[in-house]
Amino acid sequence: MSHTAHIPSHRKPRRSASKLALRAGVAGGVLGTIAVAGAAGPANAEPVTETIEMPTLGSLDGVTGIASAVAASAEASQQEALDQNLRSREDAALQTASKEAKKAKAEAERKAAAERAEKARLKAEQERKEAAERERASRDSVRTQLTSTSTSDDGGSSSSDGGSSASQGDSQTQAPSGSAAAIVAFARAQIGDAYVSGGTGPNSWDCSGLVQAAYKAAGIDLPRISYEQSSMGTSVSLSDLQPGDVLYWGSRSGSYHVAIYVGGGKYVGAQNPSSGVVEHTMDWDTPSGAVRIL
């Protein structure tokens, strides 16, 4: 519908030729009837005074009103369609907004859960580190106590070191002293640690890494590799061992495993990934030989 349809025209509506002819015909017929009646009547008859109303243009105005009503109805229908389209768009926008809100809520909950999991992991990691620190501090305390005790006894025992090596019966049970005590104390303090190839502590070791660290606790530097460690010092018999001696498996210059003799027919070593650092008797896995470096 034109946007100017509702503006009334300043021109007088034109009447169609057919409508004008119809009206003229009706008027002519009426006038003719009156004339015939007058001629046929008596001469002294009363003149006809009855007024006959002519058809008017009211019917035409009614048609115009109907057209206006139809136009108004069409405009109302168009407006209703526009309103319905607007409501449909609003409903679609609300549904989209609802979906986006649900998606944002789900994402926020996922991020919150991830943050809680990360906090829990960090807390567990911190607790594990603190427990490891406490365990290490406890080992250091034991090691310091053993070292202090052995150092205080070093003066009286040093003179007897030569005689103890001559007595094979006492070599399996004698208490370590001096540097040997520090080496033995360090090795035993690591029992229960993990075995890791290439490990040099403080909580994981391989066999030569543990031997090197134990000797370093006594102020003695050893090579890092097992066959180099077994090549040092003096070769000793397994029946003449003293605490602190280095045991080896394989040949002296080509050993593949080393450990520390701790006295009482036992040794401590970083055995393997399944056992870790353990203490065993000599007959559990008899070594090939031993060297004395002290």
Rank of each mutant, 00 (worst) to 15 (best):
V291H: 11
A113V: 00
I183M: 06
P273E: 08
T56Y: 04
E228D: 15
T56W: 09
Q79T: 12
D221R: 13
S164K: 08
S160H: 00
T173L: 05
S77L: 15
A194I: 05
R87P: 01
E127A: 13
S2W: 05
A5F: 11
G276S: 09
G263R: 09
G264Q: 03
Q78K: 15
A131P: 04
G29E: 12
R143W: 00
S59F: 03
T173F: 07
G265R: 10
E80K: 12
S171A: 05
K99V: 10
S16P: 11
G192K: 10
L31M: 12
G269S: 14
T281A: 14
L241F: 06
L57K: 01
G269Q: 12
S235Q: 15
A181T: 01
R128Y: 01
L20V: 02
D154Y: 12
R128P: 04
D161V: 08
Y248M: 00
L60C: 07
A131H: 04
I66S: 13
L210Q: 03
A67C: 03
S171V: 00
V278D: 08
V30W: 06
A39G: 10
G264K: 09
A214V: 00
K105N: 07
D206N: 04
I220H: 13
V36C: 03
T151C: 01
R14V: 04
D283R: 07
E115V: 01
Q271I: 07
V196P: 02
S59T: 05
A92S: 15
Q212F: 08
I260E: 07
E135C: 01
S288H: 08
A97N: 12
D285Q: 13
S158K: 08
G163E: 12
L238M: 12
S274V: 11
Y267I: 04
P202G: 05
L82H: 13
T234R: 14
R139T: 01
Q229F: 09
G198Y: 08
